Computed example of a mutant assay.
Amino acid sequence: MAREQHPDITEAIVRERRLHDPAVRLSRPLAEALFDPEFIEVGASGRRWTHAEMIAALPELHGGEDGPPIEAGEFTGAVLAPGIVHLTYETVIDGRRARRSSVWRRDPDGVLRLYYHQGTPVPEPEE
Score class of each variant (00 low, 15 high):
D36S: 15
A44C: 01
A23K: 06
H117Q: 11
A56E: 14
R28Q: 13
Y115E: 05
L26N: 13
P108Y: 05
R97W: 00
A31F: 13
L61M: 14
P7N: 03
E38R: 08
W49F: 10
F39C: 07
V79W: 09
P7Q: 05
S101M: 09
M54C: 10
H86M: 08
L61W: 01
A31Y: 12
S101F: 04
R105E: 10
R18H: 05
A81V: 11
L112T: 01
V111M: 09
T91G: 02
P7L: 10
L112R: 01
H20G: 12
P82I: 06
L30V: 07
V14Q: 07
V85C: 08
R28H: 11
W104N: 03
E126A: 12
D8V: 08
T120K: 05
Q118F: 03
I40D: 02
D94F: 00
E74Q: 08
T50C: 03
E65I: 08
L61Q: 08
E11P: 06
P69V: 12
A81F: 04
L34I: 09
T50R: 05
E124R: 04
R25G: 10
T88A: 11
D107T: 15
G46S: 07
A81Y: 06
Y89P: 12
H51K: 06
R15G: 06
M54F: 13
R48C: 14
H117K: 05
V42F: 14
P37C: 07
D66P: 00
V103N: 01
E74A: 09
A72K: 01
D107N: 14
R99F: 03
A81D: 10
G63E: 02
E38Q: 10
I9K: 04
R15W: 15
G67F: 07
T10W: 00
L112Q: 04
V79C: 08
E74P: 01
G119T: 01
G43Y: 06
G77W: 01
P82E: 14
E71A: 15
T91D: 04
V122F: 03
R113Y: 15
P37F: 08
R113L: 15
L80Y: 08
I55W: 12
A33P: 03
A31V: 13
A52E: 15
G67M: 02
A44D: 02
G119H: 01
V79K: 01
I70S: 06
D66R: 06
E90Q: 13
E32L: 14
R47C: 09
G73K: 04
P59W: 15
L61V: 14
D109C: 03
G43A: 12
